[in-house]
Design a protein around this nucleic acid. Structure first.
Lengths: 338, 338
DNA sequence: CCCTGGTGGGACGTTAAATGTCTCACCTTG
DNA sequence: CAAGGTGAGACATTTAACGTCCCACCAGGG
């Protein structure tokens, strides 16, 4: 809903939003080294003195800055605005420039970069989920099967999904991974299906079972169906997590933890742990989608945001197939470009 | 929260809103009699042809309108924008012009007019509640006692109230009026107190009891306290309702209904039913604030919105004391000026 | 104590944009 | 087919924006 107002403004008065961003840039430049002079500031921002001067005059008139012999400084109002506007910036402007740079370095199907830090600002995380919902809807057609992995960001996607196609089917990509219920793919597919007015399947597979009973489970018709659906599905949507963080959340046993540590695992996605070179370090013993199935998908939507996941995403890109559509926040994008 | 983005925009790029509203005006003018020519339209909107022409050219460039030999017409995108923007208009622009006109006709302390129709658009009702919360906060000081009446709009006020003063005390203006629980003042004072991090009192008085037990109830210390508090309180906040609608919601008995109908009651506020001349037709037998106490208050915040309440508000203004602060929507404002 | 490098504000000619006004060819509708 | 309304073009004029100076001022350091 928030996004809607901004979209309307974008379509009715597009230039003014950019004007707003320009002024906010000026304000934050002032904030950094106040008091600062007009000329020094203009050079720093790459605009001519006269043009900046006009902006400064107007900003002063609205009491966002105060300008005296010492130079230009933020007023109380200016500080307040600058502090409060941050969450909204995410919604107003995505970092398409960063996305473009990334596309030159990584041969992926598409890349989206959301402004901000998903761990600092809840809006950013929601925007990541919103974008995934939007792009997924774009790609879907009636009757499509979508494999769905778990995770905290994935759990938000259903909030932004709308029914636009008939007979969609959401299936959990893999069995239980020890995650807490709300972030389990079983829960998430149910919510997605409700939001999209589609169908879903549940995969009843306990967290950790013996090799033997795993095999017998695979023979069950209901389980078979899900394995088949995952093999056939046109899309996969999933998040990317930090390896040790995920291991902690899933309360893995000592032995596994040792494997992860010794294997220098940095990232995890739907049960697969990998190191900085994108090599598999460990996989959770459960049923469902395998890494080898990824190439056959039409698109794979991968989402991640926040400082703590930057190494994970960098490593993930070493194993990501070319049909991947990557949705990340600014923090991660910068790290990938560094 | 919605309001916050708009407030920021107002302070950073004040023109954005006026320009946006101007273009929306143009769009809705087009919608009314499309296809329409530039010159005809310019006369209708009171702007010169050239100025309108510029706007039209830009609107066409963004595909909000399509312009051909037949004239100017809305495009699909234009219709969509116009349909979706309506809820936001309420937040962007209050009808201060109408408020000003009203102030000339009614000798009240202050009047606020929110754009739109509270019965058509939920945002309008929320904005009414938000305004009341804002204006009340403005007026409060530490330790203030506030009398609170019930109602559906009043129930929303707590959503927008923030703790800004210490030791506030919210008391129910009158006893139970037969309203459903969520709209009872007992419930509302509790929510308000929680939102403002203040105290509240509950008034345990059954809906309809005999005259005798009412008298004995008044002697109870806890009840006494509330009667005293209501007499002493600096502020009263309440809604205004349509008489028969309120009677229906409260499931009053046949006898009362007869009194209301024969007395031609049109409005109701905290248990008092009045006719079009502002004369008392009936009052609910319960404990608490009396009409005579109103003059002593510092301010009385009265809120109402929606077509069905317009007669009630008009009548209410005949009995409203001069320390009333009226918060209404556009529909009611227009009716008061008609 | 004065000099230097920064500050804001004033000024002004130049350039670009916005505006008011009129004309023309065209289409539609009665 | 004629009349009235349509968009588009044109152009002189006004208005705003701009680039580029200069000036008085002030603070800090030699």
């Amino acid at each position: 809903m928030w996004k809607r107002l901004i979209d309307i403004q974008k379509s009715v008065v597009p230039d003014i939003l950019s004007h707003m961003l320009k002024r906010l840039d000026i304000l934050s430049a002032i904030e950094e080294e106040q008091p600062i002079g007009r000329r020094t500031l203009s050079k720093q921002l790459g605009m001519t003195e006269r043009v900046l001067r006009r902006e400064v005059e107007e900003l002063a008139e609205m009491n966002l800055i105060k300008v005296d012999a010492k130079g230009i400084a933020l007023s109380a109002g200016g500080r307040e605005v600058l502090g409060e506007v941050q969450p909204f910036l995410t919604l107003i402007e995505s970092r398409d420039d960063l996305a473009l740079q990334l596309k030159n370095n990584y041969p992926l199907k598409d890349i989206f970069v959301v402004r901000g830090d998903a761990e600092e600002n809840a809006f950013v995380k929601e925007e990541l989920a919103r974008l995934m919902a939007e792009e997924l809807t774009e790609a879907l057609s009636p009757g499509t099967v979508v494999s769905v992995a778990g995770g905290s960001t994935m759990a938000l996607v259903s909030k932004f999904l709308r029914p636009k196609h008939d007979n969609l089917l959401f299936v959990p990509a893999r069995g239980g991974l020890g995650e807490e219920p709300a972030y389990q793919s079983n829960d998430i597919v149910a919510n997605l299906a409700e939001a999209a007015e589609g169908q879903h399947r549940i995969l009843y597979a306990p967290d950790s079972i013996s090799e033997a009973s795993l095999e017998s489970l695979k023979a069950e018709p209901m389980v078979r169906e899900i394995i088949d659906l995952n093999r056939r599905s046109a899309f996969l949507i999933h998040g990317i997590g930090d390896a040790l963080e995920m291991a902690r959340r899933r309360k893995v046993d000592e032995e596994t933890l040792r494997i992860l540590t010794e294997g220098e695992a940095v990232g995890e996605t739907f049960g697969f742990y990998f190191n900085a070179d994108g090599e598999l370090v460990h996989k959770v013993k459960t049923i469902g989608l395998q890494l080898g199935d990824l190439d056959k998908k039409e698109s794979i939507f991968a989402v991640a945001g926040g400082e703590s996941k930057k190494e994970a995403v960098k490593a993930y890109l070493k194993l990501a197939p070319e049909n991947t559509i990557l949705i990340i926040d600014e923090v991660i994008a910068r790290h990938l470009l560094a």
